[in-house]
Amino acid sequence: MSQTTARPAHLQHHFTDVHQQAESAKLGIWIFLLTEVLLFGGLFCFYAIYRSWNPDMFHNAHAFLNVWMGATNTVVLIVSSLTMALAIRSMQLGRRKHTIVFLAGTVLLACVFMVIKYFEYSHKIHLGQLPGKWYFFEGIAGTNPHIFFSAYFLMTGLHGFHVLGGIAVITWLIIKTARGSFSPEYYTPIEMTGLYWHLVDLIWIFLFPLFYLIG
C-alpha cells in the first residue's frame, strides 16, 4: 500500500493508490466504448435489415460511392491509429517531444479524413444523393434508394462527429503534454483517448466495406 509514501498530485482522495485509480479509469473507458458499440449498433442493425430487404438496390446504390476516396480515408485512419499508439508508447518511454509529434500527426490525419469526407458529402449533396425526402437523384435502379443514403449519411455522419470529438480531445492532450502534465507514471488521459480513437478507427474498418465495397 502506498499510504506511507507521499500521494502524487494526480491521485484523487478516494483511491488508495495510483494503480487502483488507473485501473478504474481504464475499466471506465472500456465500458464507455461498450456503450459506443451499442450506439453504432442500432445503425448497423438498421443497415442490415434494409440491406436484407433490398439487396439489389443497395448494390446498385453503392456503385455511386467513390471507392478511392473511401480507401484513402481508410488508410488515413489506420495510419492515424498507428500514430496514436506510438504517441502512447513514446510517453511510456518518457519521450515527451515524440508524443507531441505523434499526437499532432494524429490530429493532422483526422483533419485530412474530414476534408476528404467534406468533398464526398458536397458532391453527393450537389447530385441530390441525399437521405429521406431530400433525395432527388435519378438513375439508381431498385426500390427506395434514398434509404441507402439515409444509412450512408447517418452512419458516416455519426462516425464523423466522433472524429471531430477525437480531434478536439487530442488537441487538448497536445496542450497538456506540452505543459508537462503527463509522465511515464501518469498518462491515463492519453491512454484513454487512444482507446477511443482506435474504436473510431475500428468502426470505420466496418463502414468502409459495408458502404464502399459491397453495398
Partner: peptide, 29 residues
C-alpha cells in the same frame, strides 16, 4: 448495454420528424 440503443432510437425518431429520413415512415418506404 441497453441505454445507448435508446439514444440512437430517439435520435433517429427526431431525425425522422425534423429531416424526414424515412426509415420508420411507411409512406417513405
Amino acid at each position: 448495454l441497453a441505454t445507448p440503443v435508446l439514444g440512437i432510437t430517439l435520435a433517429l425518431l427526431m431525425l425522422e420528424r425534423v429531416v424526414g429520413i424515412g426509415i420508420f415512415d411507411p409512406a417513405m418506404g
